[in-house]
Design a protein around this nucleic acid. Structure first.
Lengths: 245, 245
DNA sequence: GAGTGGTCTAGACCACCGT
DNA sequence: CGGTGGTCTAGACCACTCC
């Protein structure tokens, strides 16, 4: 796993991040235009443009045609659409994140697994039940499933006995994008018990599938979220939907 | 308001959409590579790349490095992050959308308006209370506020008496992106009554601000959503958050 | 009108994927 | 290995915003 030489775009992107974090530019400021920034880093305008694009997509910058590129007014670190990692979200919201593994097991894939994880009948799935905490307050109770075939062969001894959790961490770091169905529900049973809320408390329920870079499903999760510790955000944008499609 | 000449990128984008909607390529198919598609439309590779990029961002296509560009497996028309228009979402989910205006009024901006809509004390806001239906079943009850200053001068006669709703339509079509805080709540009061659900039914509550192309807030909404008529989706993606920012 | 981002070209080389 | 997308350059002109 030799570390790759960073691309020009990455170098420029990191350079810009540094210019912001060291206070050279701050929230609301206009950045140098694409040409000037290119000269500063010794790259072409197209390269700066690509670097800016990435920072815009992750919410750091905002572009306004005809006027300039600006440091975004609102830090959007814990928007659901820009982050797959609850650990990061909790940290970005200003809390200390932690995770408790409640249970781990291995079983045969059921119909839901076959559908969500593109598995074939008879394959095994690994199931992990976890609780996430923000400053020791429970905020997410989740049941995660992943194909056992994603386990490296050398870790498959005695029924995955050792660290299913480490495995899951490894898999979830490989996840690049996901698709969540969201739904409001009333707390009851295990979610209510683990999140330490009264039955009937409103919770957010997510049914999510995460995919790796190649578009393969690697993780299916059912998650129950409390809403009182920190806010959940979604960035929305209009896309031009053609009538013909 | 002369209609602009479509750019090459737009032409290519529409051409590709047509190739998909007429069945030349279907879900899961690999598209011609960037070079070939460029030859087909008589444009450079960079132009095709930009067209592909837009279609990927709106969920129609998926790119896999080293293998190709494909028609996305899953139509994502009614994902919350890719669509600002509930009318479109309802339609995409296969229902007939309609809207009932329950009430319209004008009042002075309160503190919440000042904060969300970047207004100055003493300005007026227009308030519209609406109910959206999917095949005549109520699905969203909302209270929308917008700065009265967005009303064209010639429509400002007698306290905006005529069609506040048409005005809101006009403004909301100008909205390009938004930011929603989501929260699960229990139905009660006006939302329960208008959505025709029992008190205590779990609802999704959105507190949303929408912005125009220049980043100006144009619309602040409080929305209560039922979850039983159609599903709400969020597309999520991992973004590389630097530790320094 | 000056300055900005938006589009576009032609060509090059690299990194990754599958066979 | 061949084919794909990913990166990068140098230069040009257009469209928009704001003074």
């Amino acid at each position: 796993m030799a570390s790759r030489r960073p691309t020009m775009v990455e170098q420029v992107r990191n350079g810009i991040r540094e210019l912001i974090s060291d206070g050279t530019y701050t929230v609301g400021d206009q950045l140098p235009n694409e040409q000037q920034m290119g000269e500063r880093f010794g790259v072409s305008r197209a390269t700066v443009r690509e670097a800016y694009r990435g920072l815009i997509e992750s919410g750091y910058l905002a572009r306004r045609q005809g006027s300039g590129t600006f440091v975004a007014r609102i830090p959007q670190q814990h928007a659901l659409d820009l982050n797959l990692s609850y650990t990061e979200m909790i940290r970005a919201a200003g809390f200390k994140p932690s995770i408790v593994v409640l249970d781990t097991s291995v079983r045969q894939a059921d119909d839901s697994d076959l559908a969500h994880l593109a598995m074939t009948p008879g394959e095994d799935v690994v199931v992990v039940e976890r609780l996430r905490l923000a400053d020791d307050r429970p905020v997410v109770y989740s049941i995660d499933r992943l194909p056992a075939s994603l386990v490296p062969p050398d870790a498959r001894g005695d029924g995955f006995g050792r660290s299913l959790f480490g495995l899951l961490e490894q898999v979830s770091h490989g996840a690049r994008n996901g698709r969540a169905r969201i739904k409001p529900v009333l707390a009851s049973g295990a979610p209510a018990r683990h999140l330490q809320v009264a039955k009937g408390t409103p919770l957010l329920f997510f049914e999510e599938t995460d995919f790796d870079g190649a578009g393969r499903p690697v993780l299916a999760s059912s998650e129950w979220h409390t809403s009182d510790v920190f806010d959940m955000w979604i960035n929305r944008k209009a896309t031009l939907h053609s009538r013909s499609l």
